[in-house]
Design a binder for these strands. Structure first.
Lengths: 136, 136
DNA sequence: CTGTGTGCAAACTCTTTGCATAAGT
DNA sequence: ACTTATGCAAAGAGTTTGCACACAG
């Protein structure tokens, strides 16, 4: 996203979320830089290293609030671990299994020319393409 | 798969797994019918309804043994839940979010004409396409 | 017999929840 | 003041593991 501090404040306003210390700190960590992928645990560690006081529970709460506000997306690539992605545009992923790293793949880099017939009475909600990689 | 009892016995032989009561019962539940998708929990319930005596731990152990033997595949579509799939051919999935149901999509029904550049020093391990559906 | 498999319960990991306290507006 | 957010610890879901006993070869 790469937003400025004042843009981040607008983001919170739009989401009708109070500008608390923790929320603002997390928002800055997430949206001041390029798109990123992370787990709650990773973000927690990172916040602590940055010297912020924030509990893991608050990280989870905040991430879900951001997700509901459309600022984050969940990516499921491994059992028992939820990744979050600051890129909310439709796109795909590389997943490097060796070290659990997620990389964005722009949507137009994967051309899907044929789609299967969708079961009647269903709508497509989303389409995930995960290309699993192993290091040589 | 739709195998006969004797084919299932060969399956276990090839995987170098003893023909124990529980293992054989599970193998029959899984491979005597068409391809299916299920969680360990679901399979456990089903086994109990069928009157089999088998613990959840043994279900997990057996599923992982089958997976190592290449008889099953894992599919990750939801946080905190692992689905298994008896279809080990490369293929894709519909996931009906409303009721947690997985459906196979044959590989040739999804034509991918362009692929992104793979990071150097990596190989494609697998490619998952999950089409998430919602009921109207 | 010998070694592997099984069931149970306990442990573990990740995530969510309840509740008292703290902070925002 | 009033309301919402936070932190902690406890609870929860799904899965894995350790160990004594049971069973297959």
């Amino acid at each position: 996203m790469v937003l400025t501090t004042s843009e981040i404040e607008k983001l919170l306003d739009n989401a009708k979320l109070r500008h608390t210390k923790q929320r603002t700190q997390l928002a800055k960590m997430l949206f001041k830089a390029e798109n990123r992928h992370f787990t709650a645990e990773q973000l927690h560690k990172e916040a602590q290293i940055a010297g912020h006081t924030i509990s893991l529970a608050t990280i989870y709460n905040t991430l879900h609030q951001f997700r509901r506000a459309g600022l984050l997306r969940q990516v499921i690539v491994e059992p028992g671990k939820v990744y979050f992605d600051t890129n909310t545009e439709p796109h795909h992923h590389f997943y490097i299994e060796d070290d659990g790293e997620l990389l964005d793949v722009e949507r137009n880099k994967v051309k899907i020319s044929t789609l299967p017939e969708i079961p009647k009475d269903c709508n497509i909600q989303e389409m995930d393409v995960i290309i699993r990689l192993r290091k040589k």
